[in-house]
């Protein structure tokens, strides 16, 4: 793997060009260009806020910020993996004619999605500021925001590892892409995006059977969503179904962050080694 990393480094100029090309192609033929990358998260947040914040009367101040803070990392993971799943096949003509490290194809897509994530967080902070200027109150920015880079690194490793694995497998079995698009859609419900982790942790039914909660936390994307939300936004009380009292916010569980870091690193190593085993056979795919 070391030799491969060394070679990758020597192709960094190509990686840069590929990321730039990818971003350019994405918005080449649309007038609003980069705006579209924010349309999906903003529209989703808006709908979720209306349904869960207003219609279901979940009385939390600034509900949309809580949704967006977790939705952005979820969408980064989802679109990285989905985009990369086709990356080898859509460039197969190039792969058949010219040598370059094949991992550049998924890697460049993960990086361009990562750039969208960063821009998404930029818009997120802008919205926080805007909200503060309109209804002044507590300063919305929190000191714990300095932990954001740590979470970003973990998210990046996880997405890249999965993308390498899926792109390699999908090159041989195109079913993988369909399975993944369903799995990634379902993942949204398994992550605390449109609800709070306290909704699950303090649910009487879950409290009676703690194993459910443990299983829920095995999902590293869910753990990351919790962490992003906790470091970026003030803790808030949450109404729990089946109980009259509101749940107090739980502190940021660093254990989960550590777990997802280790998990993500292992996924990255595993994904890359599978990719390296299969990459010479991409052109011989029948």
């Amino acid at each position: 793997m070391l030799a491969e990393l060394k070679e990758l480094w020597s192709f960094r100029e190509l990686l840069y060009t590929m990321v730039q090309r990818d971003i350019r192609i994405r918005y080449k033929n649309s007038i609003l260009g980069f705006f579209w990358s924010f349309l999906n998260p903003l529209a989703t947040t808006l709908v979720m806020t209306v349904v869960f914040g207003k219609l279901l009367n979940n009385d939390v101040k600034n509900y949309s910020a809580y949704i967006l803070s977790a939705y952005l990392p979820y969408v980064f993971f989802q679109s990285s993996v989905l985009d990369s799943s086709q990356s080898i096949l859509s460039s197969i003509q190039l792969v058949k004619k010219i040598y370059f490290p094949r991992e550049l194809l998924p890697l460049s897509l993960v990086i361009s999605n990562f750039i969208h994530l960063l821009l998404g967080f930029f818009v997120f902070f802008l919205l926080l500021l805007l909200n503060y200027l309109i209804n002044p109150g507590q300063i919305p920015f929190r000191l714990t925001t300095i932990y954001l880079p740590i979470l970003l690194v973990i998210s990046f490793m996880l997405s890249l590892g999965m993308s390498l694995l899926i792109s390699a497998l999908n090159t041989f079995y195109e079913d993988v892409k369909f399975v993944m698009s369903v799995a990634l859609y379902l993942l949204l419900f398994l992550c605390p995006v449109m609800y709070f982790i306290e909704n699950i942790a303090d649910n009487p039914a879950v409290l009676r059977h703690p194993l459910w909660f443990k299983l829920y936390n095995l999902n590293p994307v869910a753990d990351l969503c919790v962490a992003y939300r906790k470091i970026l936004l003030a803790p808030t009380d949450v109404a729990i179904s089946g109980s009259i009292a509101k749940a107090h916010p739980m502190p940021l569980p660093w254990m989960w962050v550590a777990y997802s870091a280790v998990f993500s690193f292992l996924v990255l190593i595993f994904g890359y080694s599978v990719f390296n085993r299969l990459k010479w056979r991409f052109v011989e795919r029948t």
Binding site: R21, R24, I25, K28, N29, Q93, L94, K96, K97, I98
Partner: peptide
């Protein structure tokens, strides 16, 4: 021209 992207 195998590696050309048609939209660029």
């Amino acid at each position: 021209g195998a590696g050309f992207h048609p939209d660029l």
